[in-house]
């Protein structure tokens, strides 16, 4: 196990700004009496495994990584917990959009069509929208074809590129529908990737939650408690913190909650992404 007098957190380096963000937060934690260091991983799978081999105490996790850690923790008798999330991680939805002039009026009309999705490991652009369709009775790979836009495997869809490629494929007529998080549909519409009026929303997923801080069972409790306290106390009005919060895409850290991961957990089972013990069972997943 790593030094018990210092809290060590893992983060996935999905973009260069991750260094700026966590170096800044590290200084804030240190200045406020929390000995803190961070380790960067290139993918969430290795980061989750590190929660169980003693390399890190805490992981800044995607929702999919949280679910894997939860499964692995139960399997080995070291249940994980969570301490906080961003305000912007709560109550998200994803959209399944079609071209405005398409003769697709309801979800059943997707039968025999091609649906563009993001990366295979993207909760918002692949797993959750496909699960939404599944619940409505049409099955990916059977009733309709999936067109994947894999970008940066192992980053659990943190990279926007896959969603943008799916949107472009829809507009170019290479797919009949495309899946993306609602905020990106607004972004793609305003940036011109999807000209205003060119698409129509066919379906919207139920609300779900995104990232969280996942804590290993054997993490030093007092340091974890201090980290949670400092996170929840961070003020957007603090000129030293605001640039970091903006880079990380939040205004306020919020207390933990896990109800928002239920649909994704079900999707992981339905599509066989992980097994109940957290082993990777998705065959064509590369990271």
């Amino acid at each position: 196990m790593t030094d018990r007098n210092m809290l060590v957190m893992g983060a996935v380096a999905y973009a260069p700004k991750v260094v700026t963000i966590w170096e800044g937060f590290r200084q804030f934690f240190e200045a406020n009496g929390l000995p803190f260091d961070f380790v960067l991983y290139s993918n969430y799978e290795r980061q989750v495994e590190a929660l169980f081999d003693g390399s890190i105490h805490v992981a800044w996790n995607s929702p999919l990584a949280w679910l894997r850690a939860e499964r692995m923790g139960k399997a080995v008798g070291k249940p994980v917990s969570t301490i906080a999330m961003r305000d912007s991680d709560r109550d998200l939805t994803s959209l399944i959009v079609v071209r405005a002039d398409a003769d697709i009026r309801q979800i059943a009309d997707l039968s025999g069509r091609t649906v563009a999705v993001g990366a295979v490991d993207s909760p918002q652009a692949t797993l959750l929208p496909l699960y939404c369709l599944h619940r409505q009775g049409i099955k990916a790979g059977e009733d309709f074809a999936i067109q994947r836009h894999d970008q940066l495997g192992g980053k659990h869809g943190d990279h926007i590129g896959g969603e943008r490629e799916a949107a472009r494929a829809l507009l170019a007529g290479k797919a009949d529908a495309a899946c993306m998080i609602a905020g990106n549909h607004l972004l793609f519409t305003n940036e011109g990737t999807l000209p205003a009026g060119s698409t129509r929303i066919l379906a919207e997923t139920p609300r779900y939650d995104h990232c969280n801080f996942t804590v290993a069972a054997d993490a030093p409790p007092s340091l974890v408690a201090r980290m949670r306290e400092l996170l929840l106390g961070m003020s957007w009005e603090d000129p030293a913190l605001r640039p970091l919060l903006e880079l990380e895409g939040l205004r306020q850290w919020m207390p933990e909650r896990v109800e928002g991961y239920r649909d994704l957990d079900a999707a992981v089972d339905v599509f066989g992404f992980y097994d109940p013990s957290g082993n990777i069972t998705c065959v064509d997943y590369h990271y």
């Binding site: 305000d87 912007s88 709560r90 109550d91 998200l92 939805t93 959209l95 998080i181 609602a182 905020g183 549909h185 607004l186 519409t189 698409t199 129509r200 929303i201 919207e204 895409g249 205004r251 306020q252």
Partner: peptide, 16 residues
Amino acid sequence: SPELAAHLAAWCRARG
């Protein structure tokens, strides 16, 4: 516009 509701939700979340 049918997409307004989804857009407004995302827009508001990003701005607190």
